[in-house]
Design a protein around this nucleic acid. Structure first.
Lengths: 149, 149
DNA sequence: TTGGTTGCAAAATGTTTGCATGACC
DNA sequence: GGTCATGCAAACATTTTGCAACCAA
């Protein structure tokens, strides 16, 4: 959490990245902030607990979180992923650049891969399955991180 | 379903592939047969409906199916995967060779990739994340098949 | 003001578990 | 015969939905 940005600068970050046609409500802004300050994909439950921890007086319903994650996803600023090692979906702000993670099976830490290995090979794949048009992919790499081996 | 094997030959197939230490019950054999005759990963619900369709008089409980899929997975003959486009887990017999699928987003058909693109690059990945030991990975490729474009 | 958003409760979905009965070796 | 597997129902976890009250534009 050491590289969390100073609260004052949130406003401009939000100004710059807020999706068109999405009404700006307190709940949505707060969910956005949580996503923005997270360094890896997080679950709806994690967002819920962080919200209700920081704003202990107010309530944030699960339904609100899910509905807004879906709204963010539709408007293109959030990406949902389902890792096969977890039972819940994970959400993150789209960084512009496409990302994959290496996941530690013990501590569940996720580290981004520096490059996407699929870029080079997707043409080969398309050629090997006649008529198929690739629109996306999902890659997870599992193992044990240096601390957990 | 045209290349379903002749019922008589199931016995030897089962004889050859049955995992050690797993008691052979009617239900387990029937689940195995469904998995064996399927050409792509299928869900527990799909197994349930095929079982109760073929054997309309008998009941096969969901709990039995799940418990046995877990038993098969632990004994090493079944692989469970969770695709991010589906909300349910999918199961298939391990074919010995490691497989990935190309999934059509419209008809949900799954076609196996001829090769695993990760073989060549996993060493590069390990080098780029110091101390990380890769033990496995998961790759799904999405798009539209020739019929659905 | 008004239509979109929220919180709550309840439903839907997929999966797991407890327990008494029943089947395999 | 003893142990493990089964079916049933109920529990569970995650996500979705209906609805009345509320808030932002």
């Amino acid at each position: 959490m050491s590289c969390k940005i100073h609260p004052e600068s949130y406003d401009e970050v939000i100004e710059r990245n807020w999706p068109e046609g999405v009404k700006k409500t307190k709940q949505r802004v707060d969910i956005f902030k949580i996503l923005y300050s997270s360094h890896e994909p997080i679950s709806a439950a994690e967002i819920y607990s962080r919200l209700n921890q920081e704003h202990s007086s107010e309530m944030y319903a699960f339904s609100t979180i899910y509905r807004n994650l879906i709204a963010f996803e539709k408007s293109g600023i959030v990406e949902k992923t389902v890792l096969s090692t977890e039972e819940t979906a994970m959400y993150e702000l789209k960084s512009g650049k496409h990302k994959h993670y290496v996941v530690c099976l013990k501590c569940h830490r996720k580290m981004p891969l520096p490059t996407c290995p699929l870029n080079e090979i997707s043409r080969e794949i398309e050629q090997s399955i006649p008529g198929f048009e690739i629109t996306g992919h999902n890659l997870e790499v599992y193992g044990y991180c240096s601390d957990c081996r």
